[in-house]
Every structure is written in structure tokens, then in C-alpha cells.
Design a binder for these strands. Structure first.
Lengths: 221, 221
DNA sequence: AATCGTCTCATTGTCGACATTATACATGTC
DNA sequence: GACATGTATAATGTCGACAATGAGACGATT
């Protein structure tokens, strides 16, 4: 998997991308709580860059749905309500059910192995760190979508993943026990392996339904 | 629908949005053919604005998938191949099938009327103007997704719509006759009205399949 | 003759400063 | 005292200029 012998480019990412990553991290880990305004000048000073790259990074996060912009006012961290949670998981269902159908039909053994690795990571994780559990949870779904090999499904899922992470981090749900979650994911993978499209579709749809309900029950609309 | 007596804001949209609209229009109508580079300074002079808004507009089109950026090189109009066409319609299937399921279950008479209006527009259009026909075609699908009332499905569809328009405009397909297209769309709407989820899902999936095959056959991979 | 090194040119990346906009507070008038 | 108006301030929006990067052309060297 690693391309040893090949040298990586000196600068992997451009400055605006680096800034966007830092901001996204800050939003997801609670450094910037919902509804807080992100000042361009303040961030520019803290990160020792000009306002240009900051604005460009904000543009990306606006498109990702993590920030909300008001004309001539500024950008604010989004505040996701219960209806947003339902909508996010509805959209994820649309993406992941299609991805599952493709993987079930055309998935290779390498694809299944990659997804299985994510299930194993989830099973091996410690129970008490729920932040890590949700991260690994999303990694499974990312691997599932990646296995479908669709650039656009992947693009759409990544923005939804960021939004999922945001509302998960904010609500701090009881994660329903590791064992149950591992079983749910393993069941999806098993259905994919035996090319049972109907079962895979149903399991993914149910998984979205359950996750959305779990999260939405704790939030305000 | 019109709010007479009320004055609209002086500037509806910000400068970068206006610029993005102009650029998108130019890309879709062939003013900027695929693989052409968009120079920041040239566009800034032509539009009489600074490079800042230009860069911001380009950011949006990059996210929409209409432009491709290379570090320290510039941005270029994307060149979509047959595999991209298939991928776009795969992703559209994911979005629109989910939207159709929602509309079939919870759609109001107003929703159906709005979609029916798009079918009527399509039926009333003149035959020879295929550019207009494809535009109206996409308007139907936009209305369908809008009726689902999901902000994220809508967001995802709009970017896919732009990409669809691009590869349609580039390939200039024979549009398969207006009558056939009208029947296909009317059939989808009819299935939604009678809440036949299975039929609606199948019809939308087939519509995507047919459209993708129609377009991909003419392009290069 | 082929290759490497250097130069030039055009373009993007970044920066600091000015212009514009919106909010909040103070002021004046009825 | 309450409302409308004017002003101050802090933010974003925009601009022009400088720096850095990459591509192509030209010439020198082996």
C-alpha cells in the first residue's frame, strides 16, 4: 500500500487546505462551539497567514456545510438540530445504499478485506472512548463507499461524514454498546460478501434509521 | 408569489456569486471549451473586478466539479469522459431514487402539480432546440428533488445537475425524440402520484441507465 | 547531437491597506 | 419618556502590488 522508493512532494497540501483542516478539526473537537463567529483577522493572526488563505479555507467549509455565512456579517459555526440530523442520515442512506449495491455486485476480495479491517478496528477499540468509536464507525462507512469506486459518491459522502461527525460530537450520545455496533456493521459486510443485494440494502437503510433516531432523540429541533 | 409593494434588496447576490454564475454559464454554453485554462487576471479585467472575487468564484466551481485545479498552475475546464458520464448518472440515481421514495410517500398535491408543470413545459417546447429540451429535462428532476424537501439531497443534486449539463452540452446527443422523453417523465410522476414506490424506484433507475448509456456511447473514456 | 543549466516570461500565491457595510450606542426632537 | 436620526466602531468586501512557482526557450558543455 505504501509507495516506498517514491518520494512524496515537498508540500503535500496548499496553505488554504492546511488552514481548512485546522478549522475543521477545531469545529469538530468543540474548540469552536456552534453559533460562534470565526473572525478572519483573529484567525489570520493566530495562524500567521494573511486573510486571503483564511477566506479560501472558509469557502471550503461553507460548501461542506460546517459553516454558515451571512453577507457582510461573517461566518458562524452551524448549529445542527434534530431535523438536520435526520436529513444527514437520509442523504447518507441515499449514498451508502447505492454504494452497497455496487460493492455487493462487483466487490473484490480486496474490497471486502479493507472493509473487514475497519470492522476489526472497531471491535478492538476500547469501550470507554466513545469519540474514537464514532471515528472508527465512520471509517467503516468511508471504506464501504470507497470500495464502490465512484468519485462522486465518495465526494458526497465525505461532506456528509464531516456533518455527521459534527452532530455526533455535539450530542455525545450513549453509543449503544460496542458489541451491538460491531454486529450491525459485520452483518452489512456479510451481506455484501454473499452478494445479497436485498439484505445489504435493508441493513444499511436500517442502520441509518437507527443511528438517526439515536442522535435526533437527544437534540433540539 | 410576487411580493409587490415590497422592495427587493439592492444587491441580491454577492459579487463572487455573480462571477461564478457568469463563469458557469460560459463553461456550459461552450465559451470555455474543456481543458482551457481560466486566467485570473484576464477574467478580472473582462469583468472589471479584482482577482479576489474571481478566485472565490473559482473555488465554488472547483467544488462543483466544473473546474480542475493544479497547484501553482491554474484552473482548467474539466474534460468529462464516458466513465465520468456513467459516474454522474450513478450518483444522480442515488439521489433521485431516494427523493422519489420520499415524494411517493409524503408528496402533497402541490408537489405533484409543480412537477407536472415541468412535464408540461417539456411537452410544450419546440422540437428542434435540443439545448432547451435538456434544460427543461433537468428542471423536471430538480423539481422532483426539491419536492423531497431535503436540503442535502438538493445540495448534492445541484452540483450533479451542473455536471450533467456540461457533458450533455459537450456531446450534443440526438435527444431521442421529445415524445419519448415526455412519456418517460410522465410515467415517473404517475407512479409517484399513486404512491407506487417500487415502480417509481424502477422507473427512475431505468431513466438514469438509459440517459447514461445514451450519452456515454458518444464520448471517449 | 543530446543533455544540462540558466534565463525569461507568465501565472498563481500571498500580503497589507482602503472601501463598504452592519451593529450598537449616543444624541436630538416631539 | 419614546422614537427617529446621526455617529462610532468593528467586521467583511475589495483592491493593487509584491513574492514565489512553473514552463518554455536559448545557449553552453560533454
Amino acid at each position: 500500500m505504501t509507495d516506498s522508493g517514491q518520494l512524496a512532494p515537498l508540500r503535500l497540501e496548499s496553505t488554504p487546505v492546511l488552514v481548512a483542516d485546522r478549522l475543521r478539526e477545531g469545529i469538530l473537537d468543540g474548540t469552536f462551539p456552534p453559533r460562534t463567529q470565526l473572525s478572519e483577522v483573529a484567525l489570520a493572526q493566530q495562524l500567521s497567514v494573511s486573510r486571503g488563505p483564511i477566506r479560501e479555507a472558509m469557502q471550503r467549509l461553507l460548501q461542506e456545510g460546517l459553516l454558515r455565512g451571512e453577507r457582510n456579517r461573517g461566518v458562524f459555526v452551524v448549529d445542527l438540530g434534530a431535523s438536520d440530523v435526520r436529513d444527514i442520515y437520509l442523504a447518507r442512506g441515499a449514498v451508502e445504499r447505492t454504494a452497497a449495491a455496487i460493492v455487493a455486485e462487483h466487490g473484490t476480495e480486496a474490497d471486502f478485506a479493507a472493509i473487514q479491517a475497519k470492522v476489526d478496528d472497531l471491535a478492538a477499540a476500547v469501550d470507554d472512548n466513545w469519540v474514537e468509536l464514532t471515528r472508527l464507525d465512520l471509517q467503516f462507512h468511508l471504506a464501504l463507499v470507497a470500495a464502490a469506486g465512484s468519485a462522486r459518491l465518495d465526494r458526497m459522502f465525505r461532506t456528509l461524514m464531516a456533518e455527521s461527525q459534527l452532530c455526533i460530537a455535539r450530542l455525545e450520545p450513549f453509543y449503544a454498546g460496542r458489541g451491538e455496533v460491531v454486529r450491525e456493521h459485520q452483518a452489512i459486510l456479510d451481506a455484501l460478501r454473499i452478494k445479497d443485494l436485498a439484505a445489504a440494502d435493508r441493513l444499511v437503510a436500517e442502520h441509518m434509521e437507527i443511528s438517526a433516531t439515536r442522535l435526533a432523540s437527544g437534540g433540539t429541533d
